[in-house]
């Protein structure tokens, strides 16, 4: 499983109700169901991936995550996960607001565009960065947002979103392995992962 998903999985307590947006083939949901007995639901756009998930015993809805989340009542989930999808969302602010409505906690992970390799490519080659983590050319990338760890923190402050936990990671070996970056995270991390909670106040359970 991808290293960022391993971190996310470690944040979720057994038996929790979890919504995974853009769940793909359901790796994270399957892992959490098997190891932590969570009650999970996934949302995925592609029919083949949805079918693969359902066939393996997961509850998954085929649809667009932006519209699908609107149907859920307030606090329907303990955790809502948006992993490596935020950079493809048209209206990130309203989506995150909606996720904080339906989930007690929201976990967001995204590729850090401010990683030093990206900066060097732009600076020395003068080209839009292409890397293992951002494998697309400017004309075929689904990533319509350029996000950095620092930008996202600024965003949470401006929106009044409480950051319960944050981790910056550096991954290698097809993103399966990695380590947590403590020093100069915005320069050295390939991904940022944030645990968000709605409103201020003390730490939840």
């Amino acid at each position: 499983m991808r290293f960022d998903l391993q971190i996310i999985a470690s944040w979720i307590e057994p038996g929790a109700k979890v919504l995974d947006l853009g769940c793909g083939e359901g790796n994270l949901l399957y892992y959490l169901t098997e190891t932590k007995g969570i009650r999970g639901t996934g949302i995925e756009r592609r029919e083949d991936k949805v079918a693969q998930c359902i066939a393996s015993g997961l509850s998954v809805l085929q649809g667009d995550l932006n519209t699908e989340v609107a149907d859920y009542p307030d606090h329907a989930f303990d955790y809502v996960i948006l992993s490596q999808t935020l950079q493809q969302v048209y209206e990130p602010a309203s989506l995150i607001g909606e996720l904080l409505r339906i989930g007690r906690r929201v976990i967001v992970s995204f590729p850090n565009f401010a990683h030093w390799r990206n900066r060097l490519q732009l600076l020395w080659a003068g080209r839009a960065p292409v890397s293992e983590h951002l494998p697309y050319e400017w004309h075929d990338t689904p990533n319509i947002r350029v996000i950095t760890v620092r930008d996202f923190k600024r965003f949470t402050r401006r929106m009044g979103i409480r950051v319960v936990k944050e981790v910056a990671i550096n991954t290698h070996h097809h993103n399966e392995q990695g380590h947590i970056v403590h020093f100069l995270a915005n320069l050295r991390a390939t991904y940022g992962i944030f645990l968000l909670g709605s409103g201020g106040g003390g730490e939840g359970r």
């Binding site: 949805v50 509850s59 809805l61 649809g63």
Partner: peptide
């Protein structure tokens, strides 16, 4: 609050 899967 039902557990539902959907595929088109």
């Amino acid at each position: 609050g039902l557990d539902v899967s959907f595929c088109e």
